[in-house]
C-alpha cells in the first residue's frame, strides 16, 4: 500500500490515487467502515467511549495500517534517498526524470530529456546566444533547467547555437546543413548550420555556420 510514495510521478503533486484492497475496495473506504464498526461494537460491548483513551485507541487502530504503510514505503526508498542526498543535483535530476518515465510508461522521452539537458551544458558555451527548440510539452523543463546556465535567446536569427529536442519534428535539416522550421504551416529557412552533436535524428545540437 502507498507505493506511490516511493515513486516519482506527474500526478502525485495533485492527488494520490486510491489504493485498493482485495482487488476492488478502496483502502480508505474499507478502513472507514472498520472505524464505524469499531465505534458501534464498542458501544454494544459497553466500553466507555467517552473515556479519552478508548476513542484514541480506535483512532490509532484504524490509522495504523496507513501509518505503517507510510513509514514502510519511505524506509524502502531510504537507502536511495540517502545516496541521492549527497549526489550532484544534475545526477538526481536525470534519475528523477528516468524514474518518472518508467513509472508512468512515458516511452523514454523524459528520461532522454533528463540526460540531454545535462549534456547540453557541456557542449554549448555558456555565453553563446542559444535558441531552444523543444516540443511545447517539454519546453517548460528546458526553459527552466537551462535558464541561467546558457545564454538563451528567443529569436533563431540571433542564435549561434540551436538546441533541438523535438520528436514532433516540425523542422528539417538538409544534407548541406540548411535548417528550416515550420512557421504557421510554411517552412521558413534559417540559414546553414553544422551538427555539434547528434543523439537521435530529432535530438541534436547545431552551431551556425
Amino acid at each position: 500500500m502507498l507505493s506511490q510514495l516511493a515513486q516519482r510521478t506527474f500526478f502525485n503533486i495533485n492527488i494520490f490515487t486510491p489504493e485498493y484492497l482485495f482487488g476492488t475496495y478502496p483502502a480508505t473506504v474499507v478502513l472507514a467502515l472498520l472505524f464505524v464498526s469499531l465505534i458501534v461494537a464498542t458501544y454494544f460491548i459497553g466500553l466507555d467511549l467517552k473515556h479519552k483513551n478508548t476513542l484514541l485507541t480506535i483512532f490509532m487502530m484504524v490509522s495504523a495500517p496507513f501509518l505503517w504503510a507510510f513509514f514502510f514505503q519511505l524506509s524502502s526508498t531510504l537507502p536511495a534517498d540517502l545516496k541521492a542526498s549527497s549526489a550532484p543535483t544534475d545526477e538526481n535530476l536525470r534519475d528523477s526524470f528516468c524514474q518518472m518515465d518508467k513509472t508512468q510508461n512515458l516511452g523514454g522521452i523524459y528520461c532522454a530529456m533528463g540526460h540531454f539537458l545535462i549534456e547540453v551544458t557541456d557542449l554549448v558555451p555558456a555565453d553563446a546566444p542559444t535558441k531552444l527548440l523543444f516540443d511545447p510539452s517539454l519546453s517548460n523543463y528546458s526553459n527552466h533547467y537551462l535558464y541561467g546556465r546558457l545564454n538563451l535567446v528567443n529569436d533563431i536569427n540571433q542564435a549561434k547555437y540551436l538546441v533541438i529536442f523535438s520528436p514532433r519534428r516540425n523542422w528539417s535539416l538538409s544534407e548541406s546543413g540548411n535548417f528550416s522550421l515550420d512557421q504557421d504551416g510554411r517552412m521558413q529557412d534559417y540559414g546553414r548550420w553544422k551538427q555539434v552533436a547528434t543523439y537521435h535524428p530529432q535530438i541534436l545540437i547545431l552551431e551556425r555556420l
Binding site: 534517498d81 542526498s85 538526481n92 535530476l93 527552466h144
Partner: peptide
Amino acid sequence: LLRVFARPLIDYDALGVWSRRVQI
C-alpha cells in the same frame, strides 16, 4: 528533509510558475 536534498524539483507548475520567478 532527506527528500528535499535527494529529489530535485521536476513538478510542472513548480517549475513553470514558482521556481521560474526565483530564477529570474
